[in-house]
Design a protein around this nucleic acid. Structure first.
Lengths: 222, 222
DNA sequence: CATAGTTTCATACGTCTGTTTGAAATGCAA
DNA sequence: TTGCATTTCAAACAGACGTATGAAACTATG
């Protein structure tokens, strides 16, 4: 064992390559070349390519979830067991956004790997991913504490939309930049987080009747 | 030429398989087996696998864009050159949502194929996809007409978020269903469209100062 | 019917993939 | 140093992939 240099070199190289180019385009030979180790090392240390991916994913998954929950717990403890809905949402989308966007320097391979994992549904990950729901349930519960009068279904949709906006912003940076001719600043992570949280919170705090009615009217007009 | 049964059989089978299982998991041999034709037929009729995918994508892409623009134009003409922001957004997200969600019967392979295409970034599609921005620009312009006083950047973000919510809802149906224990009805397409449009419109019509301030406050509190 | 052109077919090719193998190298205790 | 276990390495393996080939089966025109 010792420091197991080879093992961690593989993990680092694999994470970076997968984050950069996705799962489909990266072969074991690419990984071992980047890691500077022999081809057989992957199978020796991890058993198979799938097990390497799975280990990468569970490690990062646990870390991200821990970060999110820490932020949530700190906020709820500070608020006496209940946090503002905006703070809850920020704890949900903040960690991932910070990891994936912003200046190159602070952009981590880890966060970008997680995005890849959530985009490209590769078999070894798909099986593990179902546990994510249990993690999100904690946030749904916190949202319920923040907005006890709100209909449960609305809360789920709000959580879903918040993740959708954060997720898509990370994934499709290019399109928004082109569409806006660079006017949308994708480097200001705090501002982006503000936007996502603001929209989700707004949707959750506005009277559902009014929103639904507006939508129905526009539908009738259209 | 005649009816070119083989050609269209390949297209149909390929679209369905790609929609169901994604690009990575579907081989030419899967396609020709499903289409009931010979392996060499793909290369004979389309030149290569990539060209088959490209043809599939441009066909569907043009159809979707046409549908969206028809809805937009009809609304703007009815409104004397300017449509309500909700109607514009509905024209943007409605066609795709209708095609991808709802009861199995009305769910089309075409729409699901397009979602796959937007998720898994396969080389032959990636090159073509840049044109989508030009299409979206027309919606950005319509949004500007609907909300002439709104800051341009806000409009781009609103458009981006609307697409994000629609897109993610289609893509991650399973997670939301599980999280909500089935309480979120993914079969009621109109209701879902209402929600997406309502949230996006709400974000676009609420005073930006208030939203930003709320976000900043929650950030400070957290 | 004959024939030229098109389409289908079985089959094979070359390449790339993840994985395996057995020998060589290394680390470490006695 | 000797001996044993761990780790590395070059090389090869079997399988799957997209593609190419040439003969066979069609279709339609004269």
């Amino acid at each position: 064992m010792a420091t197991d240099h080879t093992r961690s070199a593989i993990l680092t190289a694999a994470e970076r390559l997968y984050a950069d180019r996705g799962f489909a385009d990266v072969t074991l030979r690419d990984i071992v070349a980047a890691a500077g180790v022999n081809l057989a090392a992957v199978n020796y240390h991890f058993g198979s390519k799938d097990e390497l991916i799975a280990e990468l994913f569970v490690t990062r998954s646990l870390a991200t979830n821990r970060e999110r929950l820490n932020e949530l717990k700190a906020a709820e403890e500070a608020g006496g067991g209940r946090a503002d809905i905006g703070v809850v949402l920020r704890a949900l989308v903040g960690p991932t956004l910070r990891g994936c966007l912003g200046p190159d320097k602070q952009r981590s391979d880890a966060a970008r790997f997680m995005i890849r994992a959530s985009i490209e549904s590769v078999p070894p990950i798909r099986k593990i991913k179902n546990r994510e729901v249990d993690h999100l349930r904690k946030f749904a519960a916190a949202m319920k504490r923040a907005l006890p009068d709100r209909d449960e279904v609305d809360l789920y949709w709000g959580l879903h939309f918040a993740l959708a906006m954060a997720h898509q912003t990370i994934r499709d940076t290019e399109r928004l930049t082109k569409l806006s001719d660079g006017k949308c600043d994708l480097n200001d992570v705090d501002a982006i987080t503000d936007r996502v949280v603001a929209v989700a919170a707004l949707a959750l705090t506005t009277a559902t009747g009014r929103a639904a009615k507006t939508a129905r009217i526009t539908r009738a007009v259209g």
